[in-house]
Every structure is written in C-alpha cells, then in structure tokens.
Nucleic acid binder design. Structure first.
Length: 266
DNA sequence: TTCCATGTTCCGCA
DNA sequence: TTGCGGAACATGGA
C-alpha cells in the first residue's frame, strides 16, 4: 500500500496520535528492519525524547525528535503504523514499538519485513544519501523542473515515474493511475513523447496524488473514472468499459486501457 | 504446493 | 553510462 498518498495518510495519523508525546521506552522486535543503526544505538536516541514533528519526503517519514534527530520510517510493500493503549493487544507483525509516558504506544508494523527504520541527524543529508529526487508534491517541483527531469531520461515512461531518484513518491499503483489519467501508455519510451505530453503529465500527476492522499487507503471512495477501482483481473476501463490490459512494464504488473492509452512510438 | 504482491537493490547483459 | 530483465529479500494470502 505505501506510496506517497498512503504515507501522507500515515503522516496525518502520526500528527494526530504521537506528536507532543514523550517516549518512555522502545523495543525493537526484529533487528532486520534496522538500517544503518543498531537497536543499541537507537534506544538512547529515542528514550525520554519527545516527538516534535512529522515530515514526509516521497515514501519516507521523518519523525522529528526533541534531540534534533529523526527516526526515519520506510514502509516497503506492507508497512504501516498503529497506535494502541497499554493493555490492548499489540498489533501482529509489530517490528518496532514506541511506548509513551502517557500509556499509549505506537507500533511500526511490517508484515513482509521489506520496510526500513533508520535514524539520522540531518534530514537533507539522509535524502541526498538515499539519492532521492524531489518529492512529487513538493512546491519545489514545478512543471519546468519535472519536464527537465523526465526529458533527461530514456526508456519507458512508467519506469521513470517510479524511479525514486528522479521524482520521489510514486509507486506501481499510482504510476498506473497517473498514466491512465494522462492518456499515456506506460511502455512508451520518453523519447517518443511530445513535449506537450510531458507538460500535460505534470498537473495530472499532482492531481492524482492529491486525490489519493485525500482518500488514502480506500480505493472504493476514489472518484468515478479512476483506474484504481478497476485494478484487478478482469477490471474494465472506467471510460470505455473495455477490459483492461495486464502487462509487465519495468518488471511490474501494469494495468492500462489500450484505447485510452495508445502506444506512441514503434 | 505454487504463484503473486502497493518496494528496493544488485547483478549481468546490451 | 544508461536501461532493462531477472532474481533476491521475507512473508502471507489466494
């Protein structure tokens, strides 16, 4: 689930549930989720510090601590965060537990262990070390920059959209949605597109991600005309009602409508 | 039992 | 150097 809109939802959730709270103690349930920090090192960096802010860059969340450092959360394919009170059952597949002084808790849950938890003193340095491009919804990513980034790339359009080092936050599902809404074929090579196609892609990308963030997690609630609601075997194009094509593009399962998204190049 | 999955990374090849 | 396919990671669900 966790692409930019989902992670934006986690951000809101954390803002509502943990900002302002002070960490009493923490518990790493499985070391394999830690990246670049040991549970040993992590503990004193969290204990007795309060949570000041939650920031997001692409699919990463930065949990700002009163120490000035950040707990960094990445969710992989199946991660999420869940708050619960002392005495309630700990969510299954909890890998990291933050226990607050007010008897509430936060679980970082990762079923398939593909997520990562790190710690950094400097948010910007972390972002550049991870080689992350600008956040797809950031004010700093205007249309001209988006255009420049994409035109510097070759190969298929979908792979470029999902490349976190170009633009950060778009994954498999939203790449399909964005390209469907833009009427562009995921397998098209960027070289085969007109500049006007890429110019059109920018506002579509922003709109789809914003709508996604608003409805995060509930694809049934997406507006009519969204591909996401039909993203299953036998799903139909919301526009023409023909059956959607399921292919592999950039190694990922790809849903598209051959009528709405005709191939451009050869 | 086998295959597949919303993410990322590494390897070998072109 | 860039792009790409395939495999790997780990686990659970269909």
């Amino acid at each position: 689930m966790p692409e930019l809109p989902d992670v934006a939802g986690f951000q809101e959730y954390l803002e509502a549930n943990v900002v302002g709270k002070t960490i009493d103690h923490t518990s790493v349930k499985d070391d394999r989720i830690l990246e670049g920090v040991s549970s040993h090192e992590l503990y004193p960096r969290l204990k007795d510090h309060s949570i000041q802010s939650i920031q997001r860059h692409g699919k990463f969340l930065f949990v700002g601590l009163s120490s000035g450092g950040y707990l960094v959360l990445h969710f992989g394919m199946t991660g999420e965060v869940k708050a619960f009170r002392n005495g309630d059952d700990q969510p299954s597949h909890t890998r990291l537990l933050l226990a607050f002084k007010d008897a509430s808790n936060l679980a970082y849950v990762s079923k398939r262990m593909l997520g990562k938890v790190s710690f950094t003193e400097k948010r910007d340095r972390f972002i550049s070390e991870q080689d992350l491009g600008p956040d797809a919804l950031s004010d700093r990513l205007d249309r001209d920059r988006f255009l420049a980034i994409l035109s510097s790339r070759k190969g298929n359009l979908k792979a470029a959209l999902m490349d976190q080092s170009l633009v950060s936050g778009i994954g498999n599902v939203y790449a399909d949605e964005i390209l469907f809404q833009a009427g562009l074929n995921p397998a098209d090579s960027i070289e085969d597109l007109e500049e006007s196609d890429l110019k059109h892609l920018y506002p579509v990308m922003r709109r789809v991600l914003r709508v996604g963030a608003r409805h995060q997690g509930h694809s049934e609630e997406y507006p009519a005309g969204y591909l996401l609601r039909e993203r299953f075997e036998g799903g139909r194009c919301p526009e023409f009602h023909g059956e959607l094509t399921v292919t592999k593009v950039a190694g990922r399962t790809t849903y598209s409508c051959p009528q709405c998204q005709p191939r451009k190049g050869s």
